[in-house]
Design a protein around this nucleic acid. Structure first.
Lengths: 149, 149
DNA sequence: TTAAAATCCTACTTAAAAAGTAGGGAATTG
DNA sequence: CAATTCCCTACTTTTTAAGTAGGATTTTAA
């Protein structure tokens, strides 16, 4: 399961992306209030997002956070990797966090290896093609649908 | 990522399945030795597998563990759920461990929901069709291939 | 009937990670 | 210069994972 850091990060990035689309900055306190996150905790998360290169920041009055790239190029897979860790279920099939399986004597002979690779690829097929922008678009569609009723 | 309990459980079940195929029982100490697991830790895991209904046990000399079902009906998804928890990445799309998203005000309006459901289905498509028997078969094939060289 | 072999049961320990808190420093702008 | 905002360090609390320890119980076979 995804940790809370990651889920908050997604919410925060969506918030920032919406603001960035209009050329504006989103302040941590504003995001925290809108998304119901503890300010201090969110600050820590935003700091991670900045180190990861997803956002840039500006201090002082009128300051805040802004996307460092187009929202449609920021993929869920990248975000999850940065804040949650590997997408694979076992380290020996992870693309970005590979480690030999400590509990497995011979990777090339393990019956689980290929299956876990399949699962990784199946998840990645979705996560690496879904951007923050896609999430926003989906959400806007839903709101539209709802208000139509 | 899968926890060690789960990975050990898979190894142990494969071991037991091989033994069961010949009508025999596998003792915890034997499995622990073969698969390089601490005996006491394995005992705890086997106890879980028993409560989950995957294996049955017999005490005393000549005793041990045995599959409680055909190896080709014991699916990875069932095992992972029992020892590792939900397969979904977020609780609100879990089939077996559903919980409303605490950090999400309205599930029906969340842009992430559908995507996470897709990921779950993609993973499940593989995990729920791969049995312990499949893993054994794959492993046997690999050994064959290797010895052919 | 007893000794060995096995599972079973309860409780404890240790280590690591997740989640959050606290307090103040540094930069920016009106 | 004062308000606003990000930034940095350190700490606390809670939960989970991973294992350990010691012995009780059941079964079998000699």
């Amino acid at each position: 399961m995804l940790n809370k850091r990651t889920r908050y990060a997604i919410k925060a990035l969506m918030h920032i992306a919406r603001k960035s689309a209009g050329g504006g900055l989103a302040a941590a306190a504003t995001i925290a209030d809108a998304e119901q996150i503890s300010v201090k905790f969110l600050e820590a998360i935003l700091s991670d997002l900045k180190s990861a290169g997803f956002v840039i920041s500006k201090k002082g009055i009128g300051g805040g956070y802004q996307l460092n790239q187009q929202a449609n190029t920021l993929m869920l897979s990248d975000l999850i990797r940065a804040t949650n860790g590997p997408i694979a279920l076992v380290p020996c099939v992870s693309l970005n966090y590979y480690e030999p399986c400590d509990i497995c004597p011979d990777e090339s002979q393990c019956g689980l290896h290929d299956v876990m690779q399949q699962v990784r690829d199946a998840s990645l097929a979705i996560l690496s093609t879904t951007s923050i922008q896609d999430l926003i678009t989906r959400e806007d569609l839903r709101v539209k649908k709802k208000s139509k009723r």
